[in-house]
Design a protein around this nucleic acid. Structure first.
Lengths: 226, 226
DNA sequence: TGCGATTTGTCCGTATGTATT
DNA sequence: TAATACATACGGACAAATCGC
């Protein structure tokens, strides 16, 4: 029942803690998109030295949350319409692939797991007071097919998309006032995942993504950069 | 005519040079797969301090060429059959997506560019004395659809696969004696890219990948780890 | 055009934590 | 258990590059 949404964390290294802290701050909106960050500020505010901080910066730069330009500076990623379209289209491709890969691997246990994830998502949505948690649970629901696909490289790709998805959803929510994902938005998704037609699943998945992009674009609207 | 295959490099930072050097050494086989590396050795042999070295290590660890286990050590990636299958399957998915994306963007200029890349590949293969160059040119040929797709995130995905593909092909070549890609292996690929049927292109692409994986697996055979 | 200030990049010495023997 | 080797982390220093004046 506990079910930590966050990945089991290595608290062991400072570098990793810094990376998590930075990710959290960016997603939570404590930094403005496009804002410039200086290492000295970060180091002193996070109470760490520049060494592990710079290593953590390299990791976040790989996922795209931070943009590092040699000798010029460090910037928080700014989200453009193009970024959203690219992420959604690539994610659609990868999630379709994940379902193709996991389709034959489905079992009663794993399907029960999927339903469980949806139930928890619905529960938190109904509670209605923790949008960030709802976002995390929605992503945890979508993670199901990647985990089941048993494809480590695909899993890595998903995990590299995760921070960006978290950021986009979080921006969406802050723009839209308070609203996480819709309550029934994944019922058919889960239902089709239980069913017999992979084609139906893929088609709905594609439409689900298209819909998500559309609402995100309209909601964010003028809040997008460049 | 020059046409540097390698990306235009920032020589500006030591960190970047280290990352390139390490990549080159791993691909060239100067390190054994699974071999443990110590920072001090690397730092002294590369004549750099541990600071930028550790940052470069983070970058290579993200692409998978190096595996870093906190407080234990740093290891050169060892290639398993599963790794090959995963990379080929994911690459097939992404390259199909790239062609779908770039299909309408094709022009006489870009198609001439593609033919040019194939011509250079064939020329180096015929010369027959530079396998690594042939590998680089084959990858440059395949990069065409990613570049034309005008999808930065997809492009990034391709670039993160590149070092691994380089490594696999290089292993293949060292196991097979001296042999780069086959001379006519991409003629039909290029021909279909000029054609009118996206479906035919995608089908051939998928088969091309399947074939590549098969030959790689049989050639490497017992040289694979675990 | 140059100059100074700021910041990133780099190096080194040292101390601590961890794994392995 | 102790000891060794190494990764990790810290802090200070200097060099290099960028930006504003």
């Amino acid at each position: 029942m506990d079910n930590r949404v966050l990945q089991p964390v290595d608290d062991t290294t400072v570098r990793h803690r810094i990376a998590q802290q930075l990710t959290k701050h960016i997603v939570a909106g404590n930094f403005q998109p496009g804002q410039r960050l200086t290492e000295q500020e970060l180091a002193s505010s996070l109470q760490v030295s520049r060494g592990p901080l710079r290593e953590a910066i390299r990791e976040l730069a790989e996922t795209g949350l931070l943009v590092s330009v040699p000798y010029k500076g460090l910037y928080v990623r700014s989200v453009t319409r193009r970024d959203l379209e690219e992420l959604y289209s690539l994610r659609t491709t990868l999630e379709r692939f994940a379902f193709e890969r996991c389709w034959e691997k489905r079992s009663t246990d794993s399907l029960a797991d999927l339903s469980q994830r949806n139930a928890e998502l619905v529960r938190v949505i109904d509670a209605g007071n923790d949008g960030l948690q709802a976002i995390a649970l929605e992503l945890k629901l979508h993670a199901w097919c990647y985990e089941l696909s048993d494809h480590r490289l695909l899993q890595r790709s998903w995990e590299s998309m995760l921070p960006n998805l978290n950021l986009y959803f979080s921006l969406h929510q802050r723009a839209h006032g308070r609203s996480g994902p819709l309550r029934e938005s994944h019922d058919r998704y889960v239902e089709l995942a239980h069913g017999d037609s992979l084609d139906d699943m893929l088609e709905h998945l594609t439409e689900h993504m298209r819909q998500g992009l559309a609402t995100t674009l309209t909601t964010l609207g003028s809040n997008l950069a460049s």
